[in-house]
Amino acid sequence: MIRVVLPAHLRTLAQVEGEVKLEIQGQATQRLVLDALEARYPMLRGTIRDHTTHQRRAFLRFYACGEDLSQDSPDAPLPEAVEAGAEPFLVVGAMAGG
């Protein structure tokens, strides 16, 4: 079970409160987590990564276990603590006014 923390605006869009919990078959990766997230909440398609290229949107970052995973390969394994549900996978909006 993977725990995902979304920014407030995306929680509003997805109509969820608090963390999202996802079941992933096999080794968890960014791609599989986002695939599962978008499958359950199709309204989030395009808000985290581009519809077509699947590239992460420029003003969003991915963190877990105190590490910035944004530049990691989308197919790289996520940390064990994330896979075990001990730590959440964080989708974070860039800190900026505007």
Binding site: L13, E38, A39, R40, P42, M43, R45, G46, H51, T52
Partner: peptide
């Protein structure tokens, strides 16, 4: 509502594919 993702309606096809395409401008 976001067209295609009305609350209470299924959000995926039977094989699990997302059906909400309303944000997609490809």
């Amino acid at each position: 509502e976001q067209p295609g993702t009305k609350p209470g309606e299924p959000t995926t096809t039977p094989d699990g594919m997302p059906i909400g395409e309303s944000n997609k401008f490809a």
